[in-house]
Design a protein around this nucleic acid. Sequence first.
DNA 1: CCGCAATCTAGGCATTGACAAGTTCAGCGA
DNA 2: TCGCTGAACTTGTCAATGCCTAGATTGCGG
Lengths: 192, 192
Amino acid sequence: MSSERTYHHGDLRRAVLSAALDVIRAEGPSAVRLRDLARRAGVSHAAPAHHFKDRTGLLTAIAAEGYELLADALSEAPDLRERGVAYVRFALGHPAHFQVMFQPELHRRDDSGLLAAKERASAELRAGITTLDTVPEPRTAGIAAWSLAHGFATLLLTHNLDEPVGDRDPADAFRSLADLLFAPGAVQVPGK
Amino acid sequence: MSSERTYHHGDLRRAVLSAALDVIRAEGPSAVRLRDLARRAGVSHAAPAHHFKDRTGLLTAIAAEGYELLADALSEAPDLRERGVAYVRFALGHPAHFQVMFQPELHRRDDSGLLAAKERASAELRAGITTLDTVPEPRTAGIAAWSLAHGFATLLLTHNLDEPVGDRDPADAFRSLADLLFAPGAVQVPGK
DNA sequence: CCGCAATCTAGGCATTGACAAGTTCAGCGA
DNA sequence: TCGCTGAACTTGTCAATGCCTAGATTGCGG
């Protein structure tokens, strides 16, 4: 915060991550330039490499952090519907993480930290489905729930639902969708 | 196909597009290099620029073409459920287009061709919802259907559903999900 | 057959990611 | 307190890339 320039930055890793998240939020992952992040942090152009190895390493770290945050968020939700809400909230609250998480070409797939974090989030996702004991096909219902939440979040982030959702609270809007999935008889197909 | 080298390529635009789609399918949009595409087409490094202006122009053209293809695919489906199936089929059949379409930072947002194509696809999407006349909230149902299809397709493409879906035909798998949305009483929430 | 515009080539510049080698510094043991 | 060691950071460099400009080639309409 103070403008003192020491040889050692103090928390360059965090500073670079933070700057990268800013850039991604504004212009997407493709706009991330290692040298630019270094400039923003006030260090030399090669300094970030010491913390992340290379560009892919940085993006992998962001993805891993994202899965950790997602796992945390999911674990706090009581039932499946609220887990879906938490999923959407996470995506909107951490758009940069979310984008990078779901572009596998950007990461090092075999990174141990990433795999561990992804597994944690995955476990939380599965745990949510067990809330639905009485459902005939919990696996199908789980995929449906995840698809619904993921699709809604993605479409929101890509500005494809700006008019239909408008000023409405996205979490509330998602609850309406989830009710369609799990409240019996809410929707009838004409010819069925 | 033949190795004759003429000054004029003949269909460089198509060749560059096609090469770009190959690259995107294999390594994502960030791996697209204009100079590389030129090499693959056997032309000089600046030739593609004449057809697409710049990298963003190329990706914009791909997105526009994608929306055209999507609109075509949707228009052929009879009802809302099959329109969802068509949506998923499109995403799996044209993964490169799909990826680029839903990364707005990669296009020139104000491109007229893109806007027109997007509007066409959007209209087809809305048209599908009118199939559900008797539904209390068609708008909500429409968003739900789109979210479900989009989320399912995205998760499939990012290899997040490899185990759960496995060898099953994705189209069939999606029909199960869609039935959960629109077949009343298929799923019951315990405490409701 | 001419000329013109579309298509493509050639060269150059600034920027970038990655690498190698050197510099600064903080902490730790004797 | 001293000196050492390794982590954190800097400086310099290279190949590759996007984009720009100027020039060469060619097909096509008049």
